[in-house]
């Protein structure tokens, strides 16, 4: 007990009884009813697949998916993956894809959020327009960008030619040197608006009085941003960066539809690679092992994600 003046009077009273975990669980049994339906659905469609993926990753499976014929092969699938040069190539491309997409989407989103923060005529319309790529399906985005990049009739090549920067159309996506970067542009186009709204909401939490105080103290716009605005954005920036990174890490549609990972695997990232292994080459066991590796990487990222999301959550009291 802490020392508090006056406590002497009460020193001899007994401690209240302690309640154990099972008692606590029993006491909150009705609370669980609220979450039960959600948990049951998630258990079937998430718990089971995760378990099954892990199991399959230790087996050699026949292409036919006649799983009664699967053979246990220990860590063979993992050894196959980790010793394959393709794995390291795809991993490097995945890192490039994730890091570059996340960085540029975040920076463009930040710029847009700052520029949109101040009230001006047409701001609402502008914000809505800038949000459209994020709402439009990735399938639609992939097709239209594929058309824009088209090697013969692409609008981008045509524009660059008209401006005089190039002489003949560029083959953006059928080129092992540029395909990955061309896809990153599409991905950034699709995702920067997400960073933008998150950061716009974050900017609203920056107290005006602080900015004004900094202005009175003679801080330049840049100093105001760096010393007042930026520190307030840190929390939401963390969440945004993590969500973007996770989303990019898990990308499938854009590379799959636009290049299928090609040409020559130059735009292959983990997810497209796993998909090909499983549904293209029917190597279910190896694909599962891949998925497990991915899973472990995501668990680490996931830890930080949830920590960023639930920070300060328990501080809010409730009955």
């Amino acid at each position: 007990m802490s020392t508090v003046p006056g406590q002497a009077i009460f020193r001899d009273v007994p401690e209240p009884r302690r309640i154990g975990l099972s008692q606590k669980v029993w006491n909150s049994r009705f609370d669980y009813l609220y979450v039960a339906p959600a948990l049951i659905v998630m258990l079937i469609v998430i718990g089971y697949p995760i378990y099954y993926t892990i199991e399959l990753s230790f087996f050699n499976t026949p292409a036919s998916l006649a799983l009664s014929a699967k053979q246990f092969n220990g860590l063979d699938n993992y050894v196959t993956i980790l010793t394959s040069p393709v794995f390291w190539k795809v991993t490097w491309q995945t890192v490039l894809w994730t890091v570059l997409s996340t960085f540029f989407a975040f920076m463009i989103g930040l710029g847009a959020a700052l520029a949109l923060h101040r009230e001006f005529a047409g701001r609402g319309v502008l914000r809505a327009l800038l949000l459209i790529p994020w709402v439009v399906s990735a399938v639609a985005a992939s097709y239209v960008w594929k058309w824009l990049y088209h090697s013969d009739f692409g609008a981008i090549s045509a524009m660059l030619t008209q401006v005089g920067w190039i002489d003949k159309p560029i083959n953006f996506i059928d080129n092992t040197n540029t395909s990955l970067y061309a896809l990153i542009v599409v991905n950034v186009w699709k995702e920067f608006s997400f960073a933008m709204i998150m950061l716009m909401a974050g900017l609203q939490t920056v107290p005006d009085t602080l900015l004004r105080a900094a202005q009175v103290d003679g801080a330049s716009p840049w100093q105001r941003f760096w010393h007042v605005t930026f520190p307030h954005l840190q929390g939401v920036s963390m969440v945004t960066l993590l969500l973007l990174a996770v989303q990019n890490f898990n990308s499938f549609i854009i590379p799959w539809i636009m290049t299928g990972g090609g040409p020559a695997g130059s735009s292959d990232i983990w997810i497209t690679h796993i998909y090909q292994l499983a549904f293209g080459r029917q190597r279910w066991g190896v694909a599962s092992a891949y998925a497990v590796i991915l899973f472990i990487v995501m668990m680490v990222l996931g830890y930080f994600y949830v920590r960023a999301l639930t920070k300060g959550d328990d501080a809010r009291a409730a009955g």
Binding site: S2, V4, P5, G6, Q7, F10
Partner: peptide, 22 residues
């Protein structure tokens, strides 16, 4: 204070005869 009831009395008595320094 600190979860403990320090004194329970009429305001006049609490004012005139506080039981402790708090």
């Amino acid at each position: 204070n600190g979860g403990f009831l320090q004194q329970y009395d009429s305001p006049a008595n609490v004012f005139a005869n506080p039981v402790n320094m708090f």
